[in-house]
Each structure stands twice: as structure tokens, then as C-alpha cells.
Amino acid sequence: MQNFQSIYRSDVESDWCPGCGDFGILSAIIQALGELEIPPWKCAIFSGIGCSGKTPHFINTYGIHTLHGRPLPFAIGAKMANPSLTVIAISGDGDGYGIGAGHFVNAGRRNVDITYIVHNNGVYGLTKGQASPTLKRGAQPKSLKYPNLNDMVNPIAIALASGYSFVARGFAYNVKHLKEIIKQAIIHKGLALVDVLQPCPVFNTVDTKEKYMERIKILDGNEFPTNDIKKAFEKALDEENLWIGIFYKNPEKETYEERYSEILSSYPSECPANLKMSDEKGNPTTDISEVLSNFLC
């Protein structure tokens, strides 16, 4: 463990609040990368905006801190241009399920082989505690002037309905369990959602660590059938218990890269990022004469 910390933990000091669930997520990511022995330079982590957005700065891999709600399309672009990269996208619940909700749903249609980790704490922490899309209706954490008027979204159910081929949830205070999920998500061929319940100790005075602990139940990997999407929906829609673990996994589903490789003549061995586009003198090597012959007159 110490070894992974020294390789993958950058020397940037984190400015997260004491007791923040983000620390657990950071540790789980670092341990997962270490145990999978992914060279830091083979991995690119894209994040959005908010407390979660800072995560890549604390990790020694390529770390791309993007725009609010947009880490997924940035990450998809990089992966499609160079499929040999291990690509991880990180959002918060506001980032991923609010402003970035369109990308969240549409990424499912593509099943690009990347891992999407969402720090889910029910509030917009960095802007001082407004309600996020995963805060339940009627809840009133300390920053809200009146109880939340909006119903909450169910990211697990949305991911299942959108075509994600791996859907899981972890808890930031169960690092060991979360690390295993992240490892499986990275290994999984296809788009993997890891929603992480992560109390915000400063602003979410409703969904506290203790409240979570009361409701959380772990899906038993040996007993729960992860290949049954109907059962996955059942667990996702369970209002009594908060299930963590792997809800659904379908490694058979074709990735976006595979779909393109069927259309393009030699993708991904020849991919947009490794094209030899010119000779030593800078002359283009692309021959368009065949295309132009259709327009010759």
C-alpha cells in the first residue's frame, strides 16, 4: 500500500475538508491503479468541476481537469483517438447527473471502454451546499432556505436504462470494497459507472455518514446475479435499503471502439492519435486522388 501511495499520490496537497469522503475515493483509485499495475503514463484521468474535479491533481497520471459537466466527452474523445489508454472520468453528482446529464445518458449508448466514477453527496459542496440532483425531495441540509422541491434522480437506474455495461455503487468510507469495485470497473471492457456515496461533512447535514451506515447493504458478489438487468433494476429501485456493490455487468456488449473497428478498415491499430500524417519534409502522406477522381471533370 505504502508503495502505491509513493508512486501514484502526487505531491499536491489536497484542500478537501477534514472528514470528506473524497479522501476515501482518492485512496481507492490509487490502490486500484497500483494493484492493477497500470503505468502512470498509460492512464489519463479526466474530471469535471467541484470538489471531485480536483482529484486528478492528487494523482500521478495524466490528469485533465476539464469543464463543469463535461469530463465524459473529453474522456471519450481521448479514448477513441488512442484506445490503448486507460481512461477514467470523474464527476460529482451535480457535474455528472445535473449539468452533464445529457452526456451521462448518451455515453451509455456508446459503451466506450472507460470508467466513470461519480462522487455522490447530494449537495454542491464547493458552492456552499445547494441541492444536487441526488438530494431527495423534502430534505433540508443546512444551506437550503426551504426543503428541497425537486425529486431526486436515480443514477443507477438511469445508467441501466441508458446502456451502461457495468453499473456499480460504492461507499467512500468502505475503501476496500470501493477499491475492488473500481478495479473491476477498470478491467471491465465497456463503459462502467461507479457511483460513490460520499457524505459531505460540512454541507450535507441530512445524509451523514451515520445515516448512510444505517441503510447501506452490500450486494453479495457470490449470490447476486450481475448478468440480470431486471434484478439490477429491482435493487436500484429499492427504497428501503441502499445497496452497494456491482448491480450489473455485461462484458459481451460491443464497445464503441469495436463498433468503429467494424466500419473502419484498420482501426484501432491505426488510430487518429498515431497516424503518420507526413514525411520528414512535412509533405502530407494522405492520398486523396481516388476521392478526387469522382469530382474530376
Binding site: 463535461r70 466527452p73 471519450i76 474523445g77 481521448a78 479514448k79 477513441m80 489508454l85 487518429p272 500524417m277
Partner: peptide, 13 residues
């Protein structure tokens, strides 16, 4: 943003 991601990976996008 997909194009920017691809450019970061070295593609002309």
C-alpha cells in the same frame, strides 16, 4: 470537448 480530448491524445481533431 471530444475533439479536445482527441487532440490531447495527439490526434488532429
Amino acid at each position: 470537448t471530444m475533439s479536445i480530448g482527441a487532440s490531447l491524445a495527439g490526434a488532429r481533431a
